[in-house]
Every structure is written in C-alpha cells, then in structure tokens.
Amino acid sequence: MPSKHARRTGGGIAAPYLFLAPALVLFVVFLALPIAYTIYLSTRRVQRSGLGLGKGSVREVNAGLDNYAAALSDASLWTSWLRVLLYGLIVLVLMLGLALLFALMLDTARVRLARFSRTSIFLPFAVPGVAAGLMWGFLYLPGTTPLKGVDFLSASTVLYSMANVAIWGGTGFNMLVLYTALRAIPQELYEAARMDGASEVRIALQVKIPILMPAIILTTVFSIIATVQVFTEPTVLRPLTNTIPSDFSPLTKIYTDAFVRGDLYSAAATAIVVAGISLVLSFGFLRVVKRQAFGESS
C-alpha cells in the first residue's frame, strides 16, 4: 500500500523506482546482458569454408545444442567435476566443521584468550585468495617448506594441499556467522538444561546445534556456491607444480577454453552448464533466506 503522504508529495510514486534505478541499470548491463550473450554464444559455432584462409571464409553459424552435447560428453569436464566434488567435500566438511567447533568453543563459559583466538581465526578473511595461495604455495614448495621430506604438491597430495588453502581462508568468516547466531540465543534456554544436570557437551549437541541449523544451512549453501567456482587456488598453485592440469576445475577449464584455446562457443556452453549445476545445488538458498529474514515483514 503506498503511503498517503507519499502519494500527496507527487514524487512519492516514482521515488522508489528512481532509487532503484542505478541498481537495476547495473543489473541489466552487467548481469542480464552478459548472461543472455553467453547463452547466445553457446548456440553458435565457427564455420570455415574452403581452407578457411580467405576473407569471409570464416563465418559464425547457428550450432543449436551441439556445444552443450559436446560439453556434456567431454570426459575432461567430468573429471574436473569429480575432482571438484572431492575437493568440495573435504573443504565443506572440514571448514564448516571447524567453524562450528570454534563457534561453540567461543560460546562456552570460562574460555580464555577468546578475543585473541577469535580475531586470529577471522584474520584470513582479510587475506586475498591469491596471497593465501602464494603463502601456502611457498610453504609447500620443496625449497622453502619448513616440513622437509613431505611432498605437498605431488599428484596424490595436491588436492588436499589446495583444500587446506580454502579451509584456512574460509573458516573464520563462517565461524563468525555461526558465533553471531549463537549469541542471539537467550541464555535461559541453557539454564533449564543445566538445572537438569546436562553437560556442556550435551547442551551443545542437543540445544545449540539444533537452534543453529538455519545458520548452518545458510553457510553451507554459500560455501557450495564458492567451491563449485574454485578458480584462484588452482590458478595460483599451478606455476609451482606440474601436477595441476589447466582443466583442473570447471572454471579453470572454461578460462582455458575461452582465452587460451580461443573457443568461446564451447566455453560459453560449459559456463552455462556450470551455472546450471550451481543453481540446482543452491536452489534452496533463497527460500531459506526469505523465510529467515522476511517471513514476518512481507
């Protein structure tokens, strides 16, 4: 319902649209248009006539769904999906597990050095992914590693070393989100359980974690979106070892297809497939957010 006064001032009806205009213009130009263009590109291909040398002998033609068929039957894309699936499982379980553990520990009575620990664990949030990759990269590199004798960058270990960079970088932020949610729980809820003689561990498992569930789901969905898109870690660690192929993750494959091999059309189709999978994985997110924040206001 428009406000009476807003209507009377005349500008009131147009005002919200004007305030939204910059965001909407940016949305159309930098989001909607690029997506539409990617979809368009994904249905095109280059056709060469003759030797493909003369002027006009290279033409862009409609390819229908051929690029999608090629992307879906590309074995190297499936290999990179499997790699990212394993990587994602390790990162999600360890990062969110540690974040939850640290948040619960911060929330216990009689914990010492809480401020120091909380700040230190959150600190990697301020470290660029490239810098994190470089620091860990040198800690892994045989010449500069403090742990001589362990090969962190071999074909069988590099995935875990990469996961460690992401866990290091992401635990703090998720810890803070969960800790903030914990702090919002009224203390009386625990008092009753304590009166009944429940241990702190039991309270954590049976009272705190169930209440935290929405926040845990939220951080999980955000983390899924981020891990599906892993790009910085493999790109930064790659110059240090020959065990990371250029199609390590779906995103590095898209980058290589588009900018190294120059095949924009199949890169576009792969990008749409990646977007589709990431959308499917995170579909529940919007519903959770809306129920959480705006359930009562709309």
Binding site: A23, L24, F27, F30, L31, L33, P34, I35, Y37, T38, L41, I225, V228, Q229, F231, L251, I254, Y255, A258, L264, A267, A268, A271, I272, V274, A275, S278, L279, S282, F285, L286, V289
Partner: peptide, 17 residues
C-alpha cells in the same frame, strides 16, 4: 531478481563482460 544475482557464478559473467 536482484538477490538472484548472488547465485550467478563469477566466470559466467566475467567472460561475456
């Protein structure tokens, strides 16, 4: 529509941009 933008992977945008 605006919030839905969160879900779009960066590379899907960066390449056409």
């Amino acid at each position: 529509v605006l919030i839905g933008g969160i879900l779009v992977p960066g590379v899907v945008l960066a390449m056409p941009q």
